[in-house]
């Protein structure tokens, strides 16, 4: 079976600034793939390249076997952006309905899907409130619900747990694991290190370069440390040292 995402040697530069430098990424079915790195590392650019919203300068991206950019394939992706892109004057239900229609969810299935997605993120009670009255955490959850509206096989989540309280974060990760069990795959960016531990596979990205890749356990063993945070620090120092040598 083909991997959901297969990115090879992806490079992207904005002017003089090399944002992505020959990144390889393979995401098979049924896996949570964590993309960790400081802000400005190129995580969002990599995600936008995978979505086909950004044109890569070098390398190729294939999603579900199709070379990106490819518009119809976008219907198979659930995407949650870094900033909450919601229509504040509309209610949560209206937001979900709108994106459901854009994602070609069949009319007879739409209300069922809305209930499912809202239930998953614990927003059933507030479904008919306007988004302008939502807290930051509720908006984040609604964004996640929108990503789930067409029940996609592949979820691309850009910082899904920012501004969400610890309890709810636990719930969301529990949900993500449940989704994974049904064969869905997720590409998740984060800069919260304890979340990285929950991923099946990690890519450490810094300055547009993939510093290290592997399962959390592998990485800890490789760098001889006991936390992902320490892996990150060590890998970063090594990168800086190499840079100095060059």
């Amino acid at each position: 079976m083909k991997p959901y995402i297969e990115a090879r040697q992806v490079s992207k530069r904005f002017g003089q600034h090399q944002v992505l430098d020959k990144i390889d990424l393979t995401l098979p079915a049924g896996m949570i793939y964590g993309l960790i790195g400081p802000s400005g590392a190129g995580k969002t650019t990599l995600i936008k390249s995978i979505l086909g919203m950004e044109k890569v300068d070098g390398g190729t991206v294939q999603v579900m076997g199709a070379t990106m950019p490819n518009r119809p394939v976008m219907a198979k992706l659930g995407y949650m952006a870094q900033s909450d892109a919601l229509y504040e004057t509309l209610t949560a239900r209206e937001n979900l309905t709108f994106f459901g229609k854009l994602m070609s969810v069949p009319k007879d299935k739409l209300s069922q899907m809305i209930d499912y997605a809202a239930n998953l993120v614990n927003l059933t009670q507030q479904l008919d409130q306007r988004v302008s009255g939502y807290s930051g955490g509720m908006k984040r959850r609604l964004s996640l619900a929108i990503a789930l509206i067409q029940d996609p096989q592949l979820l691309i989540l850009d910082e899904p747990t920012v501004g969400i309280d610890p309890e709810l974060r636990q719930q969301i990760w529990a949900e993500l694991n449940k989704l994974k069990a049904t064969g869905k795959s997720m590409l998740v960016t984060t800069h919260v290190m304890d979340e990285a531990e929950r991923c099946d596979y990690l890519m450490l990205i810094r300055g547009g370069v993939a510093l290290a890749q592997g399962t959390p356990a592998d990485l800890k063993r490789q760098y001889k440390v006991d936390s992902i945070e320490a892996v990150f620090l060590k890998a970063g120092r090594m990168q800086d040292a190499n840079h100095g040598n060059r």
């Binding site: 919203m53 518009r71 119809p72 952006a81 892109a85 504040e88 854009l102």
Partner: peptide
Amino acid sequence: TTGTLSRLLATPIR
């Protein structure tokens, strides 16, 4: 500016 356009364009809409 609110990012909804970018979000819209992450759907298969033309």
